[in-house]
Simulated scan of single mutants.
Amino acid sequence: MRLIPLLAALVLSAHTATAATQCGGSFNGFVKGLKREAIANGHSKSTVNAFFANVKKDPKTLKADRSQGVFQMPFIDFSRRLISKNRIDVGKSKAKTYSSTFDRIERNYGVSRGVLLAFWAFETDYGAFQGDFNTLNSLVTLSHDCRRPELFRPQVFAALELYENGDFSPTKTTGAWAGEIGMVQMLPKDILENGVDGDGDGKVRLKTSPQDALMSGGNMLKQLGWRAGEPWLQEVSVPKNLDWSKSGLNHSMKASEWARMGVKPRQGKLPNLQASLLLPQGRKGPAFLAYPNFRVYFEWNKSFVYVTTAAYFATRLEGAKSYVAGNPDPAFNGNQMKSLQKKLKAHGHDVGKVDGILGAKTRAAVQKEQIRLGLPADAWPTAQLMNKL
């Protein structure tokens, strides 16, 4: 499910340069290069040879990496697909079963239980489907591929370190196509840096121990900047005459300022925090205030629709009402979105890759053009915008 693995934004630029010069070419030659680097870094030759003995290029991994069309879905469709009554019921049951673990997480890391329950549900359906890709094959394949080697090459050496510690098998360890392991899907480097023995057996077993997986996930979120005891997302109602140009993650103001503009919470009170007004499908659809913790989600996944859905589901697991869907303008399909992105690029906007996904850069460009053309600047593309462009 993850679009980009954990800690992608934290990879050092030096690693990027190194990986970019060492990807591609013969796969066997590439593996020999990895082995030479591992030995140069102090790993014994016999350990390195044993670790890489059976590694293979995995075409299925590359196919999965190129096939992430699910992220083209708009928020309402995506969230309804991922959030079911059964997932909510199971989540509430898991919250009771592991109540003492969640209490420890909240004490030690300040991460609310709904947040981890939502990740647990979306990543592996509460541990039921953890992926059957050979982890080492996937990591080496993605390191060899020149699309994002800087993300994956360091993970190969982290897996080698886990292997030396007795916590990784080159032939038996499996997980997601992008190399994540366990119930909340963590990469080898993340396990080394943030793994926690939650059940007290002396080992960090993220595939078989919910306590280990949840505690490790909580520790990671804290290290990524999670602020203890603060909310992350709150559904609100908005007046029809709001200045829509102030919406979006590129803008923020105190929640009290939003309140003076007529923004009201559907439940509870507005906290005394900076907040961005989030309109996943424009001014006619659901509306949320996103607080500082919401931005931490983007260290877990770069997809706007996934992050918003995961954050919203976390609030549902803690008692929030189902959002008011409203009646948003029709969503563009993938080809329409690509056409829009090309037009935006022609107007000088940086939308990143033309991929048919309404990501942060495309949303920002849409909003700028809406302002320029005198349209409601809610960052949601419409046929009217396309015609004016």
Rank of each mutant, 00 (worst) to 15 (best):
A40K: 11
T16Y: 12
G248Y: 01
L289C: 04
A8E: 11
D378I: 05
A255K: 03
G352V: 07
R153Y: 11
V31D: 04
G282E: 01
D378T: 09
K240Q: 14
A255W: 01
Y163E: 07
T382W: 01
E257C: 10
L224I: 05
P292G: 06
E123D: 11
A365S: 04
W380T: 00
I357T: 08
K207L: 12
E369G: 02
D65H: 10
N387R: 13
G352Y: 05
V90A: 10
Q155T: 08
P381M: 06
L206T: 00
V55K: 01
F27C: 15
A383D: 11
M73Q: 14
M73D: 07
K45W: 09
P265S: 08
Q384E: 15
K343M: 10
F304N: 07
A40F: 03
F71I: 04
A346N: 14
K246H: 11
S100C: 12
G374F: 07
K94L: 12
S237W: 04
V196L: 01
P239D: 13
K321G: 06
P271F: 04
A320L: 08
F75Y: 12
V351G: 03
G29D: 13
G127Q: 05
A320V: 08
S245T: 12
R363A: 06
L277C: 09
G229S: 06
P265V: 06
T308N: 04
R113A: 06
D125P: 02
A40S: 10
F75D: 02
Q223P: 02
Q22L: 15
F51N: 07
G25I: 15
A275F: 00
L34K: 03
K342G: 10
K92C: 09
R205A: 10
P59I: 13
A38Q: 03
P271H: 05
V196C: 00
A118P: 00
A40H: 08
K264D: 07
H43W: 15
Q370M: 02
L162W: 03
A40R: 14
F304S: 07
A95T: 14
Q336N: 12
V90P: 02
R2Y: 11
P265H: 08
L136R: 10
A159W: 04
S26L: 11
A379G: 03
L278R: 02
K246V: 07
L160D: 03
L7T: 05
E230K: 11
N54Q: 15
L221K: 00
T315D: 01
K302V: 10
L233S: 05
Q370H: 03
G326Q: 04
A365E: 01
N241C: 12
R147L: 06
Q234C: 08
G110F: 03
F119T: 01
T97F: 06
Q223C: 08
K189L: 10
E106H: 11
A377P: 00
G374H: 11
R113P: 00
D201C: 08
L344G: 00
